[in-house]
Design a protein around this nucleic acid. Structure first.
Lengths: 213, 213, 213, 213
DNA sequence: AATGAATGAGGGTTCATTCAT
DNA sequence: CATGAATGAACCCTCATTCAT
């Protein structure tokens, strides 16, 4: 409560922030607790006062990220009923958080499988809630005759959005607003435009293993 | 090509295949050379006859994957000049390889940053060639007034395509042809349809850090 | 002795009791001060108000145990001069304390070597006093011609008595009185009976190392 | 088979021997793998080529010890049917092994509870076989009217025998043959002599907790 | 062409202990 | 009196890699 010394929670948040940066930089498994000790200035064993294990560190980051994104999108969508506007809000919330917290979001996307047991279950529950929300928005949106599978459309959208950390460089690429705008228009037009003859099917060959001789 | 005993190259390919499976399963850093030794039946030290280091193993996999995909797409596009058909061929080649070699492609997508030095440079060169090819196809395709940034569009497409390994389950989801078709139509219509008023901009708020209190 | 709040000494005794239980359960070295903190409900650092170190904790337990047993046996033997009765009293005191304080006595027997320096010296001094007392009792008792070495007899007795914690389960095995009685008779008859021819020596072979091939 | 370089098994035995010495000296939990590395001259990680874990090291020692003692006593008793001679052989085998392998036997006695899971189960199985054998020998031996409980007698014997490592110093104490002889006579006479009036019961007081004030 | 044996470096984690408050 | 926060040292163990054979 005091403005002065940081409390337990503030210190934990600081650790999580630093850990997220380290995990984003080197990947969860390559990162060592010693790296995080260095990044925070807290001694190796001191970290264990705040956190039970390295895995809990990852869990807390992922849980906090998903929690924030979920809370925010649910607050944003609260009064809105127009499907298109709901879609726009969803995309913009996602993109904004991604760009403003790229390191954390990279950890979220990249280390989805690095958790185990109860930790994994809890994060996946939040992830499912988020995915279901997205799918329900798309469902209201979609005209019945587009011929694009809902699941395919949903994950196409997530793919677009989550790939950001692989290429987007703030300052050099288009600003966030434009990015969200671009994604939204691309996806909306892609789903809502009448199917043009321009995209008729082409023969798909067998596609052998990469390792064939 | 050899008749009787498998030659050096065949054995190497076998190792790469097994290693790709192990890397896909556990991730590059968590996987140990011992895991690969177990998976191949070759002794720990025996592997070093075929491969200089664990990193070279990853390099060979990524290089081989990119090489194959690149070779194939270049062969496919060889005679084709129609922009839309070129686009379709590109997407279909990518999707087919992804679905038919999901483990390897996961390693390709997921462990992009795990290589260092010369290895990294060589893989990134191939990756750039592939990205440039895709961008040039999109450039021919794009009508000038869509208002979607080319780089954004390109990576939106790659995001859609590369995210596959995170959700697609062969047998349970739509078949490959339909998948490629869905992606193509979504993207083409998204880029080529006249900008509808449906997607006008919305105010984007500042989006604070995930860690704010 | 104080009425209301428990005093320093009472709290210390409580700590020692809890610590003895923990040490008996997990062994001195495997037990952690945190275990004792948990067992007492006193905070980790709070324990250090009562005790200088983990080793002092062990020392206090051992010293208190030996002190009590010694005091008691000396009080019991005070007026008694008959050798056999003195022996019986010694054994019964020992057995009773063992069975009624098995956890503590296990720590006493098992962690004899875990103390160092001054702590060790002080406990060993008490142990020697106790051993000497036992030996002197046996000496008065022993008929000169039995042919059993006094030191051997003494430690045979201690072995019998101290091994209790390895097998005795109160409630399931014979009651304490019977236990003490059994030990006493076994040992007394063993020492005092005229040597029967029944136990003539047998050839003892060299007995090589366990590890020979 | 070759006389020259030591094979895998010989090296393992050497490690076990050294580890037994270290465990006997410092106790299992206080001993570190580094201590064993130092004692053997094998690098820390090198030890893990021979042994899966520190616990396996303890298991192998205990299993080997019990195995050897069991094998030997069973071979010794093979042709013998006279109860008294069987008893003598049992005691002598036990004592001889104890004195000739004091370090190992101390580990056997002292670290009985340090194993867990399957390791523990397997050692306890051998221990039970050994205890049962002893008990069956005593049963044949015991005259029906002595009034000493069989279980008490058995563990009194084991106590005497297993306590050796706490006091016996080869060279300074009586030689092994005499030691075994002393134990045998003490126990045999103790069990077989007619109950003398000398050891009539005495009142056993309640014996409060060590910690009472 | 292949392996058994070995190692240095580093991994995550626990520990007894301290000290300002 | 009692504690929350912090630490250095040590723990067991795994790793990629080497080298004589």
């Amino acid at each position: 409560m005091g403005a002065g010394r940081p409390g337990y929670d503030e210190k934990l948040l600081e650790i999580l922030r630093a850990a997220a940066a380290v995990f984003a930089e080197k990947g969860y498994h390559r990162a060592s607790i010693r790296d995080i000790s260095r990044a925070t200035g807290i001694s190796l064993s001191g970290l264990y006062y705040y956190v039970r294990s390295k895995e809990e560190l990852l869990f807390l980051i992922q849980d906090h990220c998903f929690g924030t994104v979920l809370d925010n999108v649910e607050r944003l969508l609260a009064g809105e009923t127009d499907p298109v506007r709901r879609f726009r809000l969803f995309v913009e919330n996602h993109v904004r958080f991604f760009v403003n917290n790229m390191r954390e979001m990279k950890v979220l996307s990249h280390e989805a499988d690095s958790l185990t047991g109860e930790y994994r279950r809890r994060v996946q529950a939040k992830k499912k809630r988020y995915t279901d929300l997205c799918m329900s928005i798309l469902e209201e949106l979609r005209p019945p005759d587009t011929g694009i599978d809902l699941r395919v459309a949903t994950f196409a959208l997530f793919g677009m959005l989550n790939w950001i950390y692989n290429w987007y460089r703030p300052g050099r690429d288009v600003p966030v607003a434009e990015l969200a705008d671009g994604f939204s228009r691309l996806f909306l037009q892609g789903c809502l435009s009448p199917a043009s003859g321009v995209a008729e099917a082409m023969p798909v060959e067998p596609a052998p293993s990469i390792w064939r001789r």
